[in-house]
Design a protein around this nucleic acid. Structure first.
Lengths: 185, 185
DNA sequence: AGTACAACAGAACCGTCGTTCTTTTTGCGC
DNA sequence: GCGCAAAAAGAACGACGGTTCTGTTGTACT
């Protein structure tokens, strides 16, 4: 077959990345072998290497996918015209946590400490999330608490910082709670 | 030599574990080979296996060492007779963060998501830290804010939870900031 | 419909790394 | 001191896993 149409190609990439995420969630970033990913995706090693240069490339794609998905959840609330107050915002974010993806998310944190490429991705996503939370909180301060926009932006900073921190901690707990066996302690 | 005296043996174990922590901080839990640890510790592979059953065993020892060290910092404040208020407590904990150990700490979180043994160690340490923070906050509520002990204990729970979460998030940031190259961004 | 060329399968390769085995050294009890 | 048995060194082993290579297949253009 000549090169797949772009849509199909992207579909395959996604198929592989999703299989990889499932494997990573089960066995960790480094412990999952290409063999496992081939089994999970139903494809072969050769095929995977037609879509990703190497395993590191695939890990990056998986990390991006997981982190982006979490950022997307936040994006909804950022655009909402009835902004929730910080406590409510945090509660909703926590409620939206998916245990399997939380595991991979925490794994990316660990990987980021030594892998510059992953570190860049993680730092980027954290910054984006902080910015979005800042927008959320600012909107709430302006629309519900009737602050001046300028003052609201300033006041929003530490609040957003804390919401993010609490959310990340909860993500860690979710990842620890739902360790490999899925046992809900 | 017949078995080393217990003190010497424990010293060797510590020497190896400390070298391992340095390596882990540089290259990650799984990416550090036994060869690197031998180079860092000045010992040989055979010697390491005389003190640790296998690499997993050594990783556990390193994880325990790092997490225990952080718990120890907290222990000081728990016993203090002039308990700091929660904000001050948090600030001091953050100030006591060592970048290199933060990296290994975050790595253990990632590892805990798939490695039951490490998970047990991490969950244990988190629980211990939460309990100690609870004691700290309770002491502050009783001694400084003059609450009734019973009520103080109850009120301390959510506060301790938040202090812990904020501390853990800050640990993550420290680990990300001081990535491998030690570049202070 | 036919062709051409990339996607795909899967076996084979090669390097790496954890572990073990052998030999040498050395600290401790008698 | 002497000897013994454990610890240390370091080479060798074996397995595993990422990557590549060789066909084969099938899809997208003409």
């Amino acid at each position: 077959m000549p090169r797949l149409t772009d849509a199909r190609k992207e579909l395959r990439r996604a198929q592989i990345a999703e299989a990889a995420v499932r494997c990573f969630g089960r066995n960790g970033l480094e412990r999952t072998s290409i063999a496992e990913i081939t089994a999970e995706s139903g494809l072969s090693a050769g095929s995977i290497y037609a879509h990703y240069r190497n395993k590191a490339d695939l890990v990056q794609a998986a990390a991006r996918a997981v982190l982006a998905k979490r950022a997307a959840v936040l994006d909804e609330y950022a655009a909402s015209d009835v902004p929730p107050d910080p406590d409510e915002l945090l509660a909703r974010l926590i409620a939206a946590i998916d245990p399997a993806e939380a595991r991979v998310g925490v794994q990316t944190w660990g990987e980021a400490t030594t892998n510059p490429a992953i570190r860049g991705i993680v730092v980027d996503m954290v910054d984006r999330m902080r910015a979005m939370l800042h927008d959320c909180v600012t909107a709430w301060l302006v629309k519900v608490e009737h602050h001046e926009p300028a003052e609201a932006r300033e006041r929003a900073t530490p609040i957003a910082h804390r919401v993010l921190a609490l959310y990340q901690a909860e993500l860690l707990y979710a990842a620890l709670r739902a360790a490999t066996g899925e046992t809900v302690s």
